[in-house]
Design a protein around this nucleic acid. Structure first.
Lengths: 167, 167
DNA sequence: AAATCGAATGTTATAACATTGCATCACATG
DNA sequence: CATGTGATGCAATGTTATAACATTCGATTT
């Protein structure tokens, strides 16, 4: 399998064909925007591409710097507006624990994401949480609290960084 | 029960004797610091008191403003250092979704807190999460990821605010 | 007492993250 | 063509957090 792959970076924590992964995600986003009559403008599109290029979270100003280098706008609102669009529509997520943003890995799924965040290399793996269930759901129910959204993030060490840590 | 109570504010989302609640928490913190040889200095002590006065999260600069009004220091590091101390030692928590801080409600428990946060009135109820269990734990295990800490926060409406919302 | 040490503070500046307000442009629809 | 809406451009500001360096103060040692 190796030589077919143009790049090998971490997806979640496993290697994969990342170019393909990006292309898939972009076309899925385009389809979704078409279907939902959302306007995937050049800036929004480019920000999503930028996010997809890494499986790690990026700060708004990091993204902004890339946009600026490409002549797509240099003021903070440019990045924040695009990020708002992507996050509101489920194409990206904000990692609250890092004040940073990451492309969504499960664009079709109903959204109650949870994240595994490596504190050493910054890689992030997205998974699904079950907000209403488990302890939290029970407590909420008992308290009469209505959950509208959840933030579930775990910090720790990914497999690769555990090895390095031992060394 | 009413007239014994000096103040009635929300604890979690239920009314209670808040003065007593503060006094209890402060003496528990003092005991814990004594036992663990931690230095509960005047600023640290005062910040904990300030946090305990509300069952909602406060921003660092909101706290700083109170400190300044009392002549206890006016520069950001004053507040952040005290908050770092309180958070590191389990006397307070940071609510990542709000970039704000709240006194710990379960000072003795092993710490894997979870929060119910009312988006309308800002009240916060702390509970315990079970990090290693549930979906997240399984995914982490499958991925070989070692969880060191978790952020679990639910946003929604507390009972009182649901009523107001309906109106 | 003098020297030293470490923890906590004080002080200044700046990094990093996010929003507001308003003008303008482009385009779809009536 | 008028008008409304959504997207941008632009400038300034607001908010959260830390870096870097200096000082104070009490405990301990000499």
């Amino acid at each position: 399998m190796p030589y077919l792959w143009r790049m090998m970076t971490a997806h979640g924590f496993d290697p994969h064909d990342h170019d393909h992964c990006i292309a898939d995600a972009m076309s899925a986003a385009e389809d979704a925007c078409a279907a939902r009559k959302l306007n995937l403008t050049p800036v929004r599109r480019r920000v999503l591409e930028i996010l997809l290029q890494q499986h790690k979270a990026m700060g708004a100003y990091e993204i902004l710097a890339k946009l600026e280098a490409e002549g797509m706008g240099s003021q903070p609102p440019v990045a924040y507006r695009a990020l708002d669009f992507l996050v509101s529509n489920g194409f990206a997520h904000k990692i609250e624990g890092l004040n940073a943003y990451i492309a969504c890995s499960h664009p079709n799924a109903t959204h109650a994401p949870a994240f595994l965040i490596c504190r050493k290399c910054g890689a992030v793996q997205e998974t699904q949480s079950e907000p209403a269930r488990g302890t939290l759901g029970s407590v909420a129910k008992a308290a009469g609290f209505v959950i509208e959204s959840t933030v579930v993030e775990a910090q720790g060490l990914c497999p690769a960084c555990q090895v390095e840590d031992a060394a």
